[in-house]
Design a binder for these strands. Sequence first.
DNA 1: GCCAACGTTGGC
DNA 2: GCCAACGTTGGC
Length: 142
Amino acid sequence: MNYWLVKSEPDAYSWQEQLKNNIEPWTGIRNHQAKKNLQSMKAGDLAFFYHSNVGKEIVGIVRIVKEFYPDPTDPDHKWCCVDVQTVCTVPVPVTLKQIKTIPELQEISLIKQSRLSVMSITPEHWQLLCQLGQVSSQDIDK
DNA sequence: GCCAACGTTGGC
DNA sequence: GCCAACGTTGGC
């Protein structure tokens, strides 16, 4: 089981839309490192859903339900996407501001590689971020 | 292969 | 709106 964080600008695609859609193809990734991460995702992996630009906070959790396949929005079929399914809303959104104040979280890619839109999260950081967001294990288990 | 110019992302 | 940090492009 791996853990991830994916970014979306709420103006383009928000958590509210994700809640409505439930299952959504995660398309439009046009960065090689982000693509590499997409291809490393396994069905069942969990990912934080982060609002970039507006909000700048972790607002939800999704599960990878379909592993990488060609991105239908890419005419060259060079890039790929995965399908994600809504798992739960993070009861208390974890803001970037808050993350920056926590010494244990200074090494996460969200801070160190601020432009990367699909990144891996260590199990330790995942647990800590879940605590901060007051996500209960039951929320995720179902 | 180097590097300048340019474009994009995302925080502030 | 600005800027830092990258990534990409194209001339040489």
